[in-house]
């Protein structure tokens, strides 16, 4: 066993594009690190900022939100709300001193298993040198 830091990541995936895209990565037997635990939501537009704060508070080292590409939302425009809302969340997280790299948004379509795979690999590589997230973690 090597002692390298394994970041814990929570990924909020929309049901129609990104969760389906991550399913495709599976069907295609692509390989990516096991650091991410996915939570499927109906739409990226339904990802409340509180979910992201909650994940960091409970010890997530990184949080990912992924939905359909702008214009392709299963719910017409939910991802456009997500885009605006989560851009503000990102600013807020930076404002309180969290490393901006710890929160990511990306559009992954149901056909982009390869993109999802690369996304996770890159995210894990980005988070490893940062070490554990302590800024927002609830102290017990």
């Amino acid at each position: 066993m090597n002692d390298r830091f394994e970041p814990k990541i929570v990924a909020f995936l929309c049901k129609w594009c990104s969760s389906a895209g991550s399913d495709l990565a599976g069907v295609s037997r692509m390989q990516y690190p096991a650091n991410v635990v996915p939570i499927t939501v109906m739409c990226s537009g339904g990802v409340s900022p509180l979910y992201i704060f909650s994940a960091f508070k409970r010890g997530a080292d990184g949080v990912l939100v992924s939905g359909c590409h702008p214009g392709d939302c299963h719910y017409i425009k939910g991802n456009l709300y997500a885009r605006r809302r989560l851009a503000l969340v990102k600013e807020l997280l930076e404002h309180v001193g969290l490393e901006p790299e710890r929160f990511q948004m990306s559009w992954v379509s149901a056909a982009e298993g390869a993109k999802y795979t690369e996304l996770i690999k890159d995210f894990v590589d980005t988070l490893r040198p940062l070490g554990p997230q302590a800024k927002l973690r609830r102290r017990v």
């Binding site: 939570i39 939501v41 109906m42 537009g45 339904g46 409340s48 509180l50 909650s54 939910g78 809302r85």
Partner: peptide, 25 residues
């Protein structure tokens, strides 16, 4: 049931059945 309302509401007054905010927490 997309939940965009749920993520927008400041008071958690509107929630999608079987995927409420408490579910996600």
């Amino acid at each position: 049931g997309c939940g965009t309302c749920m993520a927008t509401c400041l008071r958690a007054a509107i929630e999608v059945k079987n995927l409420r905010t408490q579910h996600v927490y």
